[in-house]
Computed example of a mutant assay.
Amino acid sequence: MSTEMPAIPDAAGPPPLVSLLQEFSLEANRYADSAGARNDMHRTDLNALSVIMQHTAKNQVVTPGVLRKELHLSSPATTALIDRLDKSGHVVRERQGTDRRQVQLRMTPKAYRDGGAMFLPLARHMGAAMEEFTPAELEIATRFLHAMIDATVRAGEEAAAPPPDSQ
């Protein structure tokens, strides 16, 4: 049995800025895991609240189907997730409008309080770090991050698509 490490391909690897984005993503995930664990919440719970908050900010209705699609969950997993969030007091199910069959999900004041408390340390440290940059630098960083988010969404869509020869 060989104890040698496999050979590393000759590829130079990602550009330094892409490596930094990967490192930031990893650290943000670690923070979310730690903050969630302190509050008995899994990352999926936090992601669900984030999806609901984003849609609510755009005055969009959030249904279990929206949550299922956004988080790439099965219907049973989505039901279990909503049940957990309901039981913890973070989400309520409401039936509104003329079609009373459609369930809408709303975050509770408790969810906003708990989320604020969980992410306050991160916001405080990030705010302090941002003070070291000029408004012009922050504008460039903002444009850059928007472009990276868009690129990541496109790459995710490409990765989820069936291979061209299987169609």
Rank of each mutant, 00 (worst) to 15 (best):
A128W: 04
M1T: 03
A111M: 04
Q60C: 09
T63V: 03
L49D: 03
G156T: 08
M1C: 04
L21Y: 12
R43F: 06
G97F: 12
R124M: 07
M41V: 00
P14F: 08
T63L: 08
A128Y: 14
A80R: 15
E131Y: 01
G156S: 11
P15L: 11
Q60V: 07
L17G: 04
P16H: 09
D86T: 12
L20Y: 01
P109L: 03
D150S: 11
M126E: 02
A136Q: 09
G116D: 02
G115W: 02
N29Y: 14
Y112H: 05
Q22W: 02
V92K: 10
N39L: 05
A48P: 03
D165F: 11
A123Y: 00
P135S: 04
Q102D: 02
A141F: 02
M107T: 08
Y112D: 07
A35Q: 11
I52P: 04
L85C: 07
E132P: 02
A35V: 00
T56E: 13
P109V: 00
F133C: 04
F133L: 07
G36W: 06
D10E: 05
R124I: 01
M5T: 12
L17Q: 08
P6I: 03
A12R: 01
A136F: 10
E27H: 02
M53D: 00
E139S: 13
R100D: 13
M126I: 04
M148I: 00
I140W: 05
P121N: 07
L20D: 09
V103W: 09
S34P: 06
S166R: 11
A57S: 12
P76I: 04
S2R: 08
P14S: 09
T152H: 15
D86E: 14
P162D: 07
A128P: 00
E158G: 11
P9Y: 10
A160Y: 15
P135Q: 04
E70F: 10
L67D: 06
Q96L: 11
F24P: 00
A147N: 11
L17H: 01
R30F: 12
